[in-house]
Amino acid sequence: MLKTVSAILGIAFVLAACDQAAQETATPPAPPPTKAWMVFFDTNSSKLSQQGTATVNEAAGVAKSMPNAKVTVTGYTDTDGSPAYNQALSVRRANAVKAELVRDGIDATAITVTGVGEQSLLVQTPNQTKQEKNRRVQIVVQ
């Protein structure tokens, strides 16, 4: 009888150890999917083009299909103009995209807006250079 109890306790201990090891090696859940879009702007403008509006509408559609989606909108400029002016312009661009997202049904509280001005150029250029690919807003939905 003592051998049987010892055997049962031994088996229970081994099973518990295996279960704990399995829990320790289990991979964490995958992060939510992230999708990104870029909207480009004319020189010294924060007005969305027809193509820009279509891109924002597409991003909004994806955001609406994801439960509890968070949207990050980051504005950028090229190096033409002063850094202070470009910083403000990047914020205006990001806010223009946010306004369109809200018109498309995205809750404003789910959108974070940042302007970074001349930082993080997509195409590296010297100062005072107009570069259309740097005049952009990036939309990230997660």
Rank of each mutant, 00 (worst) to 15 (best):
1 M>D: 12
2 L>V: 14
3 K>S: 14
3 K>G: 07
4 T>V: 15
4 T>G: 15
4 T>Y: 15
6 S>P: 00
11 I>P: 05
13 F>Q: 15
15 L>D: 04
15 L>W: 07
16 A>W: 02
20 Q>A: 14
21 A>E: 12
21 A>H: 13
24 E>W: 06
25 T>W: 14
27 T>E: 11
29 P>F: 07
30 A>E: 11
30 A>H: 11
30 A>V: 09
33 P>L: 09
34 T>C: 08
38 M>A: 14
39 V>M: 14
40 F>K: 09
41 F>I: 10
42 D>Q: 11
44 N>C: 05
47 K>R: 14
48 L>W: 00
48 L>P: 00
49 S>L: 05
54 A>G: 04
54 A>V: 02
54 A>E: 03
58 E>P: 03
60 A>Y: 00
60 A>N: 01
62 V>Q: 08
63 A>N: 04
67 P>M: 13
68 N>K: 10
70 K>I: 02
71 V>L: 04
72 T>S: 12
73 V>C: 04
76 Y>N: 02
80 D>C: 10
80 D>N: 10
82 S>W: 02
83 P>E: 05
83 P>R: 08
84 A>Q: 06
85 Y>W: 07
85 Y>R: 08
87 Q>K: 14
87 Q>L: 14
87 Q>D: 12
90 S>Y: 04
92 R>N: 03
92 R>T: 00
92 R>I: 00
92 R>S: 01
93 R>Q: 04
95 N>H: 03
96 A>K: 00
99 A>D: 04
100 E>A: 06
102 V>D: 06
106 I>S: 01
106 I>W: 01
107 D>S: 11
108 A>M: 08
111 I>K: 07
113 V>E: 05
115 G>N: 03
119 Q>L: 10
121 L>S: 04
122 L>Q: 03
122 L>E: 00
123 V>S: 14
126 P>C: 13
126 P>G: 13
127 N>Y: 13
127 N>L: 12
127 N>R: 14
130 K>S: 07
133 K>A: 12
134 N>L: 02
142 Q>F: 10
142 Q>Y: 12
142 Q>P: 05
